[in-house]
């Protein structure tokens, strides 16, 4: 009897979560990009049948991106082996000029060997961000002062080669983590502030659908 009650409570709670996660129409869709795993083009529909956690960022992002991927690494570690097989964690770069597939692979694998980085042409990235109603904008080449980045004493380089090699850019970008179901529909927007327990419960609901 107690077992039946517990199962009923569990089903009601899962149903309640599913109700909280309607399809967010107009967010997401089909696209192609270069995977850090293979260096080859991959269609997003290839991930159908898996629950996807997708976020945007870039490897030279010093604060929020490593923190977001660290958060996802922490969340991923709490899943069971079976659940891990059912999800894919994807990071789409907004800096395709710097983030080559090889570069992204090194960055992603630092957090988890199963995490996937996606890159492509500037047009590809624009298309993906448009699909997900995400935004990004280049703030500046780090070496050029802007309205926000000013009065900085630059480090002195020993030579021009070192200076040239160090050129990189800053971006502002969307911080949401898109929770996407097995059919490719975006169901929820999460953040690094989401309690991992609650996030995992949502992932489990989508795995069980």
């Amino acid at each position: 009897m107690l077992k039946k009650i517990l199962i009923t409570i569990l089903l009601i709670s899962k149903f309640s979560f599913a109700q909280e996660m309607p399809i967010l129409s107009g967010i997401g869709g089909e696209f192609s990009a270069i995977s850090s795993m293979t260096g080859k083009e991959i269609k997003f529909s290839k991930f159908k049948g898996k629950v996807v956690l997708l976020s945007f960022g870039y490897t030279n992002c010093s604060d929020i991106c490593p923190f977001t991927l660290g958060y996802l690494q922490h969340l991923y570690a709490k899943l069971t082996a079976k659940e891990k097989q059912q999800i894919r964690i994807i990071f789409v770069t907004v800096d395709p000029e710097y983030d080559t597939p090889k570069h992204l692979k090194e960055f992603m694998q630092h957090f988890n060997k199963n995490f996937i980085g996606l890159t492509g042409s500037k047009q590809t990235i624009k298309k993906i961000t448009d699909l997900f109603q995400a935004e990004y904008s280049k703030l500046a080449e780090i070496s050029i002062p802007t309205e926000y980045i000013r009065r900085v004493n630059q480090k002195t380089f020993n030579n021009e080669v070192e200076k040239k090699a160090d050129k990189s850019s800053l971006f502002s970008h969307t911080v949401a983590i898109y929770l996407i179901d097995k059919m490719g529909n975006t169901r929820s927007l999460e953040y690094t502030g989401t309690a991992t327990k609650k996030f995992i419960e949502k992932i489990q609901v989508l795995i069980d659908e």
Partner: peptide, 22 residues
């Protein structure tokens, strides 16, 4: 620092966007 360019930044999130303010 002699080893890097250092700035005091603040990440601010407005309308789902992360921005850095120096």
């Amino acid at each position: 620092s002699d080893d890097a360019t250092v700035m005091l930044h603040q990440t601010q999130i407005h309308s789902n966007m992360a921005n850095m303010v120096h």
